[in-house]
Every structure is written in C-alpha cells, then in structure tokens.
C-alpha cells in the first residue's frame, strides 16, 4: 500500500472516529444532565461569581495537589 492510500484511509477513519466522538459527547452531555448526574449549566456561573474570595463552584481539598500538571 503506498502512502497515498494510507493517507486516504487514515483521514477517512480518523474523521469517522472524531464524528462518533463528537456525537458521543452530545449524548453524554444531555444524558448525564437528564439522569441528574451532572449539571453542566452551573459552570456558566463561574464567570459571574468570580471574586477571589467567592466559593468555587467545584473545588475540593486536593486542588493544591496538582503540581504535577505544571508545565
């Protein structure tokens, strides 16, 4: 198989894969909200209530332990 074909197949399958993921994400977003597992809309409030002293919408005790994510 030459590189042209490989390129074609790779792009085709990656496109399909990404489309499936995107649709999966839509389903995930709405289903988890319907089941009450997760309220995505509350994150919208992060922008409104953004004082350094205000309570995080979603904060927990090990926030500070993520130093491995420093880059």
């Amino acid at each position: 198989m030459d590189i042209r074909n490989l390129q074609g197949y790779a792009s085709f399958f990656m496109t399909i894969f990404l489309v499936v993921m995107l649709y999966g994400y839509i389903v995930h977003l709405y289903r988890s909200e319907k089941k009450g597992e997760k309220d995505y809309e509350k994150y919208g409030k992060i922008a409104l209530d953004d004082e350094v002293t205000s309570k995080p919408i979603e904060g927990d005790s090990h926030t500070k332990n993520e130093s491995e994510e420093h880059k």
Binding site: L22, L29, Y30, E33, A47, L48, D50
Partner: peptide
C-alpha cells in the same frame, strides 16, 4: 466573549453545553 459578555450583562451563558460542543467542533 464567553467571559466578558456574561459578566458585563450579568447573564450566564445561554447554554454551557452548546459552548462545549462548539469548542470541540471548532477544534475538529
């Protein structure tokens, strides 16, 4: 725009889910 418009108007983003979707759609 996702920060300044909600903050200036005092209105949360209309649909946060749509904003997430648009993000991945745009990246893709």
């Amino acid at each position: 725009v996702y920060y300044f418009l909600p903050k200036e108007s005092g209105q949360a983003v209309y649909s946060y889910k749509l904003s997430l979707l648009s993000f991945w759609g745009l990246m893709f």
